[in-house]
């Protein structure tokens, strides 16, 4: 893990980070295979994360106006085998998967107590499966579909917009709209109204 950061003049500050995580996986079950099917992945899994934050406030005084830009990017690379069982049928699949997810958001406090924000989220997956051995499944395509490891050829994405008002440091009222395209053939319009409050003492804030 590596974190770097600094100031740009009196008004701006930034921080960027990189991290990497590497794991050897033994028999990790798929969460999306059908209920009577067991699919277990074994192999190498590497995760890379990059993050960046930029903050601006006039003369470094955020009381009235300030801006925060923030983004994070996750990338996972996996390679190994998937062992599949369903009743008396069994198969061994070669698996090579690449998934990434990222978001970027901007929150601007345009006047004391009031903030507006915009955010975009996206997930992508490119998973390649190849049947190495099979007994009992009707076809390779059937075994691949039942493993739950195949990607669905759809990249979920979401746009969010919010406006919030903080009467004090201890409470916040937020109106938010999401255009959620998580599902392949339909999109959702979500409206939420939140009331957020803090009770008791709380420590100093992270950057």
């Amino acid at each position: 893990m590596l974190k770097l950061g600094g100031d740009i003049g009196d008004s701006s500050a930034w921080q960027g980070g990189l991290s990497a995580l590497s794991a050897e996986v033994h028999d990790r079950a798929s969460a999306t295979s059908p209920p009577d099917t067991v699919a277990a992945f074994s192999g190498d899994s590497d995760l890379y994360v990059a993050d960046f934050v930029y903050k601006w406030a006039p003369a470094g005084n955020p009381d009235q106006r300030n801006l925060k830009l923030q983004t994070e990017f996750f990338y996972r690379r996996e390679q190994g085998d998937v062992a599949l069982r369903e009743g008396g049928s069994a198969a061994l699949l070669g698996y090579k998967g690449r998934q990434s997810g990222w978001y970027a958001q901007a929150v601007y406090q345009f006047v004391a107590h009031w903030r507006a924000g915009l955010r975009y989220d996206r997930l992508t997956a490119d998973n390649r499966l190849q049947v190495l051995e099979t007994s009992g499944f009707s076809s390779s395509a059937d075994a691949i579909a039942k493993s739950g490891f195949a990607d669905r050829g759809h990249d979920p994405q979401r746009w969010s917009f919010m406006l919030d008002w903080s009467p004090s440091e201890f409470s916040r009222i937020r109106a938010q709209y999401n255009r959620d395209e998580s599902r392949a053939n339909a999109s959702d319009d979500q409206w939420t109204l939140q009331y957020i409050m803090t009770l008791g003492s709380h420590g100093a804030h992270l950057f």
Binding site: N61, D63, A204
Partner: peptide
């Protein structure tokens, strides 16, 4: 760590301050 144009109550723990 701060300037006269900042409110010393409300400063963020920026990377430069930590460094």
């Amino acid at each position: 760590a701060t300037t006269a144009h900042q409110d010393a109550h409300h400063i963020q723990a920026r990377p430069s301050l930590i460094a």
